[in-house]
Nucleic acid binder design. Structure first.
Lengths: 290, 290
DNA sequence: AACTGTATTGCATATTATGCAACACTACAA
DNA sequence: TTGTAGTGTTGCATAATATGCAATACAGTT
C-alpha cells in the first residue's frame, strides 16, 4: 500500500464521506472508492461498512486505522530525522576546481551537496589544474577537483570522479597548419601549442615521446586549456586538450579533432584533499555525497 | 511505497547484492534497481552507495532500514490480529429459517458469516415461519430467521433484517375464480386459501377485517406459503403470500398479483433468539456480522 | 588485452490507475 | 406515488506507471 492510500483512508475514516475526502485529496470519488477497495483486498477484510447512505468503520477498519496512523507518524519522524541530520552541518567549504571540471562535473556535485547540506557555504576558486595540488597542500583550500597527476604524494586522498578524454585538435580554417596535417607529415614540423605545465603537459610529453620524431616544434606555451583552444582556432598550431573543454568553447567550430594520432590516456578526474583533512565533518560530508 | 518494495529493500540491505535479491523476489535486476531508485526518490536521500562492484548502506539507508522493518513487523501483527479475531471462533450454530427467508436473505448472511468465521459449523433447519419462535423457545435452535409476529414475547431478542412485502394473488388460468375477480365482487364470495397459522394468517385476518364484508369464504387451509401458491395456481382461490415466495415458485407464471386490494403491512423479517442466549459468543458473532 | 560479473538505462510492451459517464439505490419533499 | 437529490459503485477508454530485454558502462581478475 502507498502512504497516499493510507492518508486517504485515515481522512475517510474521520469524515465518513467519500465525496468530501475525494475532494480533499484532489481525486474523483470513483478513484477513492477503488483505493479503499484495493486496501481492503490487501488487508483481506472490509475496512468500512457502507452503502449509498452511510459509511461506518468496521472492526478491522478500526485496527487498520491505528496501523495507518502509526505508519504515517513514523514516516514523518523518519523525514524529520533525515532532514535534521542533513541540515545540521554549517560552515564554509573552500574548493579549488580546474576550469575543465567546472564545466562538466562540478555543477551536479554542488547541487547535490547543497541539497543535502543547505547551510554550508561554498567558496569556489577556479583555475589551472596544475595549481590544484599546491593549493590543497598549502591549505588554501579544503580540497580540489582536478585531474590526478602521474605521481600523487601519499599526503593526499584522491576520490575518483570520472575519466576525461583528451584529443589532439587542429584548426579548421585554411592555413599552413591545416594544409600540413592533410598531407604526410612529420610531427616535428607541426607547430605545437603547449600547456605551461600540469597534467595535460605531461600527457603531451608522454604522447610525443612515443612518436619518436625528434624535437617538438613548440610554437607557444599557454596557461590554461581555454587559451590553448583559442590559439589553435587562430591557426597557430595543434594541441592536446580535454574534449569537454572544446565542447564548451565558443570557438569549437573553428577546431577539429585529429584522428589516428595514437592513444592519449584520459585524465583521471577526482576530488583531492589532504589525508589529515578528510575526517573533518564538512569534507567528509562532501565526499559522502559524491 | 509498497510493502513489497520495503521487503526488497530490507533483503537487499542484508545481501548487498542486486542480482541475488532480485532473484529472491522473482524480479529482474533492472526492476530491483528501479524499485530502489523510486524508494530513494520518495525518501529524498540515497539509501545505498553503490557502483558496479560494491553496495553499502548509507546513513539514511540505515535509518530507512529500521523504518522498513518496523512497517513490515507492524503489518504482520495487524494480519495476525485480524486473522485471529476471525478464525478463533469454533463450534456449531443451529439456525431455523423460514423457507421464505431461505430464498432471499439467508445466503448472503451465511456467506459473510462463514467468511469471517470459517471454523464455525452451521446446522440449518428450514420450515414454516409459524414454528420459528417455538423452536427458539424450546432451544431446539440457537436462533431463527423469520417474520416477526404481531406480539413478540419479551423473552426474545429480535434483530431486523428487511421488510418482506406481501400481496394478494389469484390464478391466471381461465376459471370461475378468475372470472369472479374481473367483475364487481364481494370478498365474502371469493374462495380464500388460508395459511394454517402464523404471521401470514394474522395478516390475512387483519386485512380481511378491514374489508368489513362479512365472513370469509375459506376454501382451504394450507401449511406453508409454497403450497398456498400452488393451490392458487390451480384455480382454487386467492391468498395472501410474500412476493419473494411467488418470485421463486415454479408456478409463478400461473398466478397474478391483484391490485387495489387495500394495504397489507409487510413482514418484518429478522433474526430472533432468546434474551438469555444473545451473549453467547457464536450467537453474538452472528449478530455482529449482520 | 580479454573476460567476467555487476548495476544501470533506453525503449517497447504489459500492467495498473484514473476519471467520465452511467448505474443502483435510498431518503426526502411535493 | 412520483420526482429529485445525493451517495457510492462500476464499465470502459485512456493515461500513467512498472517491468524486463538488451545494451551499456565499469571495475576486478586472469
Amino acid at each position: 500500500m502507498e502512504l497516499k492510500s493510507l492518508r486517504m483512508f485515515v481522512d475517510l475514516s474521520k469524515s465518513l464521506h467519500f465525496g468530501k475526502t475525494a475532494e480533499l485529496h484532489h481525486v474523483s470519488p470513483s478513484t477513492l472508492s477503488r483505493v479503499i477497495q484495493r486496501l481492503e483486498h490487501e488487508v483481506g477484510s472490509a475496512l468500512l461498512h457502507r452503502d449509498n447512505r452511510t459509511v461506518v468503520l468496521s472492526e478491522a477498519g478500526k485496527q487498520f486505522y491505528q496501523f495507518a496512523e502509526q505508519q504515517l507518524e513514523q514516516w514523518q519522524l523518519l523525514q524529520l530525522s533525515l532532514n535534521q541530520k542533513q541540515a545540521e552541518l554549517q560552515g564554509k567549504l573552500h574548493i579549488y576546481c580546474s576550469v575543465t571540471a567546472a564545466y562538466s562535473h562540478l555543477p551536479p556535485l554542488l547541487e547535490r551537496f547543497r541539497q543535502q547540506h543547505p547551510l554550508v557555504e561554498i567558496m569556489l576558486t577556479t583555475g589551472d589544474a596544475a595549481d590544484a595540488l599546491e593549493q590543497v597542500e598549502k591549505q588554501a583550500v579544503d580540497f580540489a577537483i582536478a585531474a590526478k597527476p602521474e605521481q600523487l604524494s601519499r599526503i593526499f586522498t584522491f576520490e575518483h570522479l570520472a575519466k576525461i578524454p583528451l584529443s589532439v585538435i587542429a584548426p579548421t580554417m585554411v592555413c599552413r597548419v591545416q594544409q600540413q596535417i592533410q598531407q604526410d607529415f612529420s610531427w616535428s614540423e607541426i607547430p605545437i601549442i603547449l600547456p605551461e605545465h600540469g597534467p595535460a603537459r605531461k600527457r603531451f610529453e608522454y604522447w610525443y615521446r612515443k612518436k619518436q620524431q625528434g624535437k617538438a616544434n613548440i610554437y607557444a606555451t599557454v596557461s590554461g586549456h581555454e587559451a590553448l583552444v583559442s590559439m589553435v582556432a587562430l591557426g597557430c598550431g595543434v594541441g592536446i586538450v580535454p574534449q569537454v573543454v572544446v565542447e564548451n568553447s565558443p570557438v569549437k567550430d573553428r577546431v577539429q579533432y585529429l584522428a589516428d594520432v595514437g592513444e592519449i590516456a584520459p585524465f583521471d578526474l577526482g576530488v583531492c584533499c589532504l589525508n589529515q583533512s578528510k575526517e573533518q565533518p564538512l569534507i567528509k560530508a562532501f565526499f559522502a555525497s559524491i
